Simulated scan of single mutants.
Amino acid sequence: MFGDRAYDGNPVWKAIEAMGATAVIPPHPRRKNPAAWDSHLYKARHAIEHGFARLKQFRALATRFDKTARSFSAQVALACIVIWLRL
């Protein structure tokens, strides 16, 4: 389970452990006992969030103009192709 520094609290850590997941949350700078975290997994999370942010730049995707799931998935595919071609 991934989270930002704002989610570095004991209740959040306990809830994640209760779900049986591993928390990847960087410690808050003021925390007395910082927990260990995997910075490589956190960087991968950032890459995924950046990809979703790029998809949200397409107005039709961000506002969900399409009525059916089929046409929405086609719009997502087209947006991914446009993003890929920009590289």
Rank of each mutant, 00 (worst) to 15 (best):
L61T: 10
R30F: 11
T68A: 02
A47P: 14
F52I: 01
Q75R: 15
I48V: 08
E17C: 07
A18G: 04
V12W: 05
P27A: 10
H50T: 06
H40A: 00
S71W: 09
S39C: 04
H46K: 14
A44K: 11
L85M: 01
K67Y: 02
E17H: 04
M19T: 09
P26N: 01
L41C: 13
Y42G: 00
R70G: 10
K32E: 04
Y7I: 03
A62W: 03
A23D: 04
F52S: 06
A44H: 07
I48Q: 01
A44Y: 05
R45V: 00
A53Y: 04
D8W: 12
D38Q: 10
G3T: 04
F58T: 09
L78R: 08
T68L: 01
E49P: 14
Y7V: 01
A15K: 13
Q75N: 14
E17I: 09
L61K: 15
Q75E: 09
E17T: 06
G9V: 07
A60E: 10
R30N: 06
H28G: 07
K56S: 13
D66E: 11
I83W: 07
V82H: 03
F52M: 08
R45H: 02
I81K: 07
L61G: 15
K43C: 01
I48R: 01
R30L: 06
A6H: 13
I83N: 06
A35R: 15
V12C: 06
N33K: 15
A79D: 00
M1P: 02
Q57I: 11
K67Q: 04
L87P: 10
S39V: 07
L61N: 15
K14Y: 11
P27K: 13
R54C: 13
N10E: 12
M19G: 12
R31G: 09
F58H: 15
A74E: 05
V24D: 05
P34M: 00
K56H: 11
W13I: 10
R64I: 00
G20I: 00
I25K: 04
F72W: 11
H40L: 01
W37A: 15
A18M: 02
Y42T: 02
A36V: 12
F65H: 10
A74C: 14
F65R: 13
D66Q: 14
A77L: 11
I81R: 05
R30V: 01
V24C: 03
Q57K: 15
R30M: 06
P29S: 08
F2N: 06
G51A: 15
T22I: 10
D66P: 07
A35G: 14
V82K: 05
H46D: 08
A79K: 06
I16T: 06
C80N: 03
A60T: 14
R59M: 09
A53F: 07
R5H: 03
E17A: 15
Q75V: 07
Q57D: 10
K67H: 00
P27Y: 07
M19Y: 08
T63A: 12
R86T: 02
I83E: 05
M1I: 10
F58V: 08
H40S: 05
K56W: 09
W13G: 04
T63N: 14
